[in-house]
């Protein structure tokens, strides 16, 4: 018997490293470059990684502070309606309650009238933190109302999407029909010859991509944002192959002619301001 044989595998116990005196809530490990960075630094860089430029997700309220002059609406239009539960879908009521608590929103959207770099604009922002930013009847209604308001007041429209969830399964066919509703409203905006800029952020998918998100006169994305119709897992199951690197990322879409431009978050407000002035001049 070879008592002293070297085992092929062995377990190595790793001592959990204590982050030398730094409380957990002060730092974040960047999911892209794995650097440990002070939250203060990330916030100062508008929620991007100062080391590798990774764009962290932003809540709708943070996005409003980023884009609107003085960080506020002139008039908030969203928040007066709440989702029903048309299918009495298991667990939906709880998910809504959690979403409301987490995002301080009635649903996955924040909308209103604001100024962006001096141009009065109808702005809607979807929030990934509220059920994946999925579109149900409330999002459809808020967007339709905002667009109708923009037509009456002759305002350009900007919609920032962070809706990886696509159409909200919990509202069944009703959520699918919001794709038609928002697209119909955008058709009227188009007929009124008003500008619509769609801003795609990480992640945007499914029924949101296949309706208002891809209908911008101009379409802008943030770096590395995941923008898709079908999810990567569904596609892999269908074609039984691994997907190419960077597939469905903003840079991939730009190469394939689906976007006008990719804009760094630091330049987003200024860029939007310049583009909005095209239509208002």
């Amino acid at each position: 018997m070879d008592w002293f044989r070297k085992p092929k595998y062995m377990t190595v116990r790793v001592k959990k490293e204590k982050k030398a005196g730094i409380p957990e809530n002060l730092v974040t490990r960047c999911p892209s470059c794995a650097e440990i960075i002070f939250n203060k630094e990330i916030a100062a860089a508008l929620k991007t990684c100062p080391k590798c430029n990774h764009h962290f997700q932003m809540s709708a309220w943070e996005r409003l502070r980023l884009l609107a002059d003085n960080g506020v609406f002139i008039e908030q239009t969203s928040g007066k309606i709440q989702a029903g539960d048309p299918l009495e879908f298991p667990g939906y009521a709880d998910k809504l309650a959690k979403g409301r608590k987490k995002t301080k929103l009635q649903d996955a959207i924040l909308a209103g009238i604001c100024a962006i770099d001096g141009t009065k604009t109808a702005l809607a922002i979807t929030d990934f933190g509220f059920m994946g930013g999925s579109m149900g009847a409330v999002m459809g209604e808020e967007i339709a109302r905002l667009i109708e308001r923009a037509i009456v007041d002759r305002l350009p429209v900007v919609i920032v999407s962070a809706s990886g969830g696509g159409a909200r399964m919990q509202e069944g066919i009703i959520s699918l029909m919001q794709m038609a509703k928002t697209s119909a409203a955008l058709s009227r905006l188009d007929e009124a010859k008003l500008l619509y800029i769609s801003v795609l952020t990480d992640p945007t998918g499914g029924g949101v991509t296949a309706s208002f998100a891809m209908l911008g006169d101009l379409i802008i994305a943030e770096p590395n944002a995941l923008i898709m119709f079908a999810g990567p897992r569904v596609i892999e199951q269908t074609i039984r192959q691994h997907l190419p690197k960077r597939f469905q990322r903003a840079e991939f879409l730009l190469e394939h002619g689906m976007l006008d431009m990719i804009v760094q978050r630091q330049q987003l407000r200024e860029t939007l301001g310049q583009l909005l002035r095209i239509s208002s001049s």
């Binding site: 794709m179 038609a180 697209s183 119909a184 955008l186 058709s187 188009d190 991509t209 296949a210 309706s211 208002f212 998100a213 891809m214 209908l215 898709m228 119709f229 079908a230 569904v234 596609i235 269908t238 074609i239 192959q241 997907l243 190419p244 597939f247 469905q248 394939h256 002619g257 689906m258």
Partner: peptide
């Protein structure tokens, strides 16, 4: 719609969205 590589590359979401509008 076909959930494959080429559909995503060639903008199936855009094609559907445009039809809705």
């Amino acid at each position: 719609a076909y959930p494959g590589l080429e559909g995503e590359e060639r903008g199936v979401a855009e094609a559907i969205a445009r039809n809705l509008r």
